[in-house]
Write a protein that binds this DNA or RNA. Structure first.
Length: 215
DNA sequence: CCATTAATAGGCG
DNA sequence: CGCCTATTAATGG
């Protein structure tokens, strides 16, 4: 792995990408850069005492929590350039969720207080953060709606359409394991597997393994 | 190889 | 539809 360029790392994050140079330099100063997390290791979990916002530099991670009945509920996934932890701007609590690396992953993180100090200096940054947070809210609401009001096949198909739209391709690889996708959609892996097959038979999609194509 | 995890299939409530 | 179990595929040492 080549030497890490802090400025380059920030360029992966849409939130920071176009900030004035001096602000980005300040961001670099207050960040901890490219912490390595082996595949399968926990990046964060409740009660670990970590705070602040983090950005995923390289790799992939899933955000989830455990339901009262002891089952894992996947809330979402983080891909390159995604940030997580804005919630600490609005509530002082530590993370209630688990974040686990699903691949070998490098994380850059920023201390909460330092980050907030920078926010005060940059209305631009604050505005972007707010928008980013708002987008996430919409996504969360959409998914809640899906889980509550749609049947299994409908919410699976809806998710696929959504994701396809997000990355701008109608053929793609699932960014999660199917069991994790099932968890995120509130399905069992078995149901997901069956509904995928039904969609295939119905000629709405085609797939092989994680490779999905919308028809 | 063996062990573990993921994906799929089939049966049942 | 979820839960359970069995079989198979894929992965890792």
């Amino acid at each position: 792995m080549p030497a890490h360029d802090p400025l380059n790392c920030l360029s992966h994050v849409e939130l920071f990408k176009d900030l004035p140079l001096d602000l980005r330099k300040q961001l670099v100063k207050i960040s901890s850069h490219r912490k390595y997390y082996k595949k399968g290791s926990m990046i964060r979990q409740p009660g670990d005492g970590q705070d602040g916002v983090l950005s995923l530099d390289i790799g992939k991670a899933k955000v989830f929590n455990i339901t009262p009945s002891g089952k894992e509920m996947v809330l979402g996934i983080l891909r390159q350039g995604d940030i997580e932890g804005q919630a600490y701007l609005f509530q002082k609590d530590e993370s209630e969720n688990f974040i686990q690396a699903t691949e070998d992953t490098w994380i850059c993180s920023m201390n909460y207080n330092d980050f907030q100090g920078l926010l005060k200096k940059s209305p631009d940054l604050a505005l972007r953060l707010l928008n980013n947070f708002g987008q996430r809210l919409v996504k969360t609401q959409q998914n809640t709606l899906r889980v509550n009001a749609m049947g299994a096949q409908a919410r699976l198909y809806d998710y696929l359409l959504d994701y396809s739209k997000e990355i701008g391709k109608n053929s793609f690889n699932l960014p999660l394991k199917k069991k994790d996708l099932a968890s995120m959609l509130g399905l069992t892996p078995e149901t997901l597997s069956r509904e995928l097959k039904k969609l295939k038979v119905a000629k709405k999609i085609d797939y092989a393994g994680k490779q999905i194509t919308l028809l």
